[in-house]
Amino acid sequence: MKKFPLVAVPVLLFTVLIVFLFQGLFSDPRELDSQATGKPLPDFSLPDLMQPDTSYGPDDLTGKVRILNVWGVWCVTCAVELPYLTKLSREQDVTFVGLYFDQDLDPDFGTKTLSRVQQEVTDMLSRYGNPYAFNIFDVYRDMSLDLGVTGAPEHFVIDAEGIIRMHHIGDINERVWNNKIGPLYNRLRQQNRSLEAAE
């Protein structure tokens, strides 16, 4: 009887350790808690990818629920998700805005011309579908840095007030849309519509 607790101590410690390590097997080290969620969009002033004379700011992303999609032609997963995004925009009226940045267009040692980038974008969108209302061109990749983007594709759900509600790292496919992004997007859109109807 007196010996029982002493034996239990290592067993208990071992159990705790095993539970801790076992959880580690299923945790994803790539999953970072985004700092952008819940915050308004950072201030920016960037040109349209296709019409460089048009410029956009945070105000152009309010008044409607949108999904900001960080992408580039060099990104393979982006090409894979383009047909599904196009389907969403056609069938469910989801608004996508592209935040485009180029990998080869080095701001310090420009190697690629803008018209070349535009050509590549046009080619890719005509091949896989164009879900975008418009594309913002993140010339120096500053906006991506401010948003905490680590690569492409990444998605930000932005509500009608311009607040970032979700930061999704990775592509949107049917599973991700139905389980993660779709419910939030539809709820936000519903809220916005009832607000507009009340006014």
Binding site: P29, R30, L32, Q103, P107, D108, R141, S144, L145, G148, V149, T150, G151
Partner: peptide
């Protein structure tokens, strides 16, 4: 580096590390 997680940004050649160095 947020992309290649076991490297610092001095060591990494990922685009994000490049951008962070520039910043």
């Amino acid at each position: 580096c947020p992309m290649c997680q076991n490297q610092n940004i001095a060591d990494s050649n990922a685009m994000i590390a490049h951008d962070m160095r520039r910043k």
